[in-house]
Every structure is written in C-alpha cells, then in structure tokens.
C-alpha cells in the first residue's frame, strides 16, 4: 500500500483546491467591497446594501450585535421606553408549534420606505444605495415616521445629548434609526453589528450588495430560503431573514 495512488492524489488536490477556494473566496469578496468609495464620489444607485440574517446561527443569549451598535453609534445602551434602540434582539415563539427563534431587528431599509413617504419635510429619505436615513438637519421631530414604520425601527431622542461620536451626529428632538453604519460602509467597512456577530463566532449576519448578482449575499439569497418581515406590505426591505 506504499505505492502512490495517483487517482487519490488528484482527488485530494481537487478537493483541497475547492476547499481553499471556499475559504479564500469570501475573503476575496470581502476585499471586493472593502475599498469604499473614492473621496468626492456619491453613493451609487447601482449598489443596494442589504443584509441576510441567519436565525439558525443567532442565539437568544447573545446580545453582541446590540452592544456593538450602541458602542459604535454612541447610544447609551439603556432600554427604558425613552431610550434609543437602533437594533434589538427579538425572541419569537411560534404560537402553534412552540418553536423559538431569536433574531436582531433594526431598520429594514425598505425599497419603498413608509417613513420617507410620510415625512413632511423629506428628512427621511432613501439614499441611492438603498440606505434609509434621517437627515437631522431637516427633521422637525413630528414623529410621523415612527407611526408609519411597520417595524418600529425608529427612536426619538428625548433628552439633550453630549459627546456624540464624531462620525454619528445625533441630537435631541430628532428621530433616528439604524444607518446601516453608513459611515463605516462609506469607508468600505462592514456595519458594527455584522463585525461583532462574526467576532462572536456566529456569522449570523451577512452584509453586502444585493444588487450585484455575483456578491456573496446575492448568491446565498439565491441558494437558501429566506424571507422579509411583513413581506405582505410589499415594501421590499433590504434585510432578509433565513430560518423563519
């Protein structure tokens, strides 16, 4: 049995190549969008940022995405009724089967955002690359968007703030919500929650360009069953959930 088996070698070679490819490819893809935009370049309408959350990988006792979001965006982390929460962990129990699911819920970055439709001043808007934002220079604090959002994704700043993160301006009397870490995305980085989830070893949140059919996220959306929350409203959110 000491003779070299060429067939086995070939097989090993092929499999290891495929294996290596599988390991490296996401890294390459990661690099692909990890260069950000050049200075002075506007967000492109050819891109649509989105997320795919694998609820199978999300644990009910893990809150790392929420903590990371709070730290990144300078939120207090408080959970009283007047505290801002841009992302929250929701525990679901199927009323009939009793199966439980844990998942993060944040702004779903709709293609047709009701918040932007109802906003009287146009402060709520959808950027060319699909990120739904509040232009706080225009927000008058009427909270109509909070009434209109089907995901309860928005918070109102109830108190004066100080020492905001330089990248994340926030202020009393205006409405705010998940920005998909727009300041990081514009630098070519991933949102803080995605990074934290990967760091925790779960990799439950996949972030990427869902308008690019070759992106990792698009391929995965094609390969596995996923759904949008309240898909019946036809808002086409950019956030999708697997295993719900």
């Amino acid at each position: 049995m000491s003779a070299i088996n060429p067939e086995r070698r070939k097989f090993l070679g092929k499999t290891s190549a495929v294996f290596a490819g599988l390991v490296i490819a996401p890294g390459v893809l990661l690099y692909d969008f990890a260069h950000g935009r050049a200075a002075g370049e506007a967000a492109s309408g050819r891109v649509r940022w989105g997320m795919l959350v694998d609820t199978g990988q999300c644990a009910s006792d893990c809150n790392d995405c929420v903590s990371a979001c709070n730290k990144e965006n300078g939120l207090s982390g408080g959970t009283s009724a007047t505290d801002s929460q841009w992302i929250r962990k929701v525990e679901l129990k199927d009323l009939r089967s009793g199966r439980t699911t844990s998942l993060p819920v944040m702004c779903q970055h709709c293609e047709h955002p009701p918040c932007a439709d109802v906003c009287p001043t146009g402060a709520s808007f959808r950027r060319a690359d699909g990120i739904v934002l509040v232009d706080k220079h225009r927000c008058i604090g009427c909270r109509y968007c909070m009434m209109a959002c089907p995901y309860k994704a928005r918070s109102f700043v109830h108190e004066p703030l100080t020492d905001q993160n330089p990248d994340v301006p926030r202020g009393k009397g205006t409405v705010e919500s998940c920005t998909l870490c727009v300041h990081r995305v514009d630098r070519g980085e991933q949102p803080a929650c995605v990074e934290a989830c990967a760091k925790a070893g779960r990799r439950a949140i996949l972030f990427g360009d869902i308008a690019d059919p070759e992106s990792e996220i698009s391929k995965r959306i094609r390969a596995v069953a996923s759904a949008q929350i309240r898909a019946d409203l036809m808002l086409n959110p950019g956030i999708r959930y697997e295993g719900m």
Binding site: V90, E91, L92
Partner: peptide, 13 residues
C-alpha cells in the same frame, strides 16, 4: 410585526 408568533424584546415587542 411577526404574524403567528409571540414576540418579546427590550423594545416593547
């Protein structure tokens, strides 16, 4: 938000 499920969270779901 989640038809058919019982939901709970820190945000009053």
């Amino acid at each position: 938000i989640f038809p058919g499920y019982e939901a709970s969270s820190s945000f009053g779901d």
